[in-house]
């Protein structure tokens, strides 16, 4: 697997794949520069909490698209160059499927680390007065990566399955909108929409009083059982998609 992963990174030379998470990180930075202008002392007092509330919502919108582009970029090089039939004579289908997925996951991890860094940097640059809750911060990072991985599993499968990358990209784009709008749907509906799971695991809940124009947050207990179930779903999805892919003749 180590060798297969090394080869995947070699394939990524001159492909500028790193530019994809970097572009989305830049969007996030610009968004934060815009949001952090002229903060009041009350706003500074819930600075970190607000970011841990806001980032999952942003991720619901941005990450499905980013993941779709990422998977498509890395899988399309195999499709364009008609390399799969050659690769299958050199490595097992499973090794190919797994190493490509882990390569994509590496860039997803870079994005998650980038987001975490932005949260820390915002606190330092804008002098938030509250303390960063490290448990909630860790939960945010873990959720962003794990939900991202589950979506990546789907996009990875679709991008390798279809020779035309338009369909996986459309699904990714639709996922972005679905993820955002699912937050306005009843929970019985939104629970079936994986793209909304970034917000599903939010560590804080926001309250807004329209009369006093006051905003405050209450911490939410982390749904560990749901998180473990998501992990199990992810692993099951990966194994199923891997088996379907391995059975396919080229």
């Amino acid at each position: 697997m180590k060798k297969a992963l090394y080869n995947e990174f070699y394939k990524g030379r001159h492909a500028y794949v790193w530019a994809i998470p970097l572009a989305f990180i830049c969007i996030t930075i610009l968004w934060q520069i815009f949001c952090n202008q002229k903060l009041t002392s009350e706003q500074l007092a819930y600075g970190y909490t607000y970011l841990l509330y806001q980032f999952p919502i942003m991720n619901s919108l941005m990450m499905p698209l980013m993941i779709a582009v990422l998977a498509s970029r890395l899988c399309d090089m195999e499709i364009k160059g008609d390399t799969i039939k050659q690769l299958y004579t050199l490595q097992s289908r499973k090794a190919f499927y797994d190493s490509k997925f882990f390569h994509e996951a590496f860039f997803l991890l870079l994005f998650v680390i980038g987001e975490c860094a932005i949260i820390c940097l915002c606190g330092t640059i804008y002098h938030y007065t509250d303390n960063l809750n490290m448990t909630a911060f860790g939960q945010f990072g873990a959720v962003t990566f794990v939900v991202g991985l589950v979506i990546l599993m789907l996009q990875h499968f679709l991008s390798l399955r279809f020779t035309n990358q338009i369909l996986p990209l459309i699904i990714g784009l639709a996922g972005s909108f679905l993820g955002l709008f699912a937050m306005f749907l009843p929970h019985t509906v939104s629970r079936w929409i994986i793209y909304s799971y970034f917000a599903e695991f939010q560590t804080a809940k926001m309250y807004w009083d329209a009369n006093t124009r006051e905003m405050w947050f209450t911490p939410l207990s982390f749904p560990y059982v749901k998180f473990v179930l998501l992990l199990i779903l992810g692993v099951a999805l990966f194994i199923i998609s891997q088996k379907i892919f391995a059975k396919r003749e080229v």
Partner: peptide, 26 residues
């Protein structure tokens, strides 16, 4: 075994030498 099935397989964004180095590694 070496093979060339139907159309040639290559990574367009890599140079010819890099393509072969990748295969050599595999």
């Amino acid at each position: 075994t070496g093979s060339l099935i139907e159309s040639p397989s290559y990574y367009g964004h890599l140079t010819g030498e890099e393509n072969l180095k990748l295969l050599a590694s595999m």
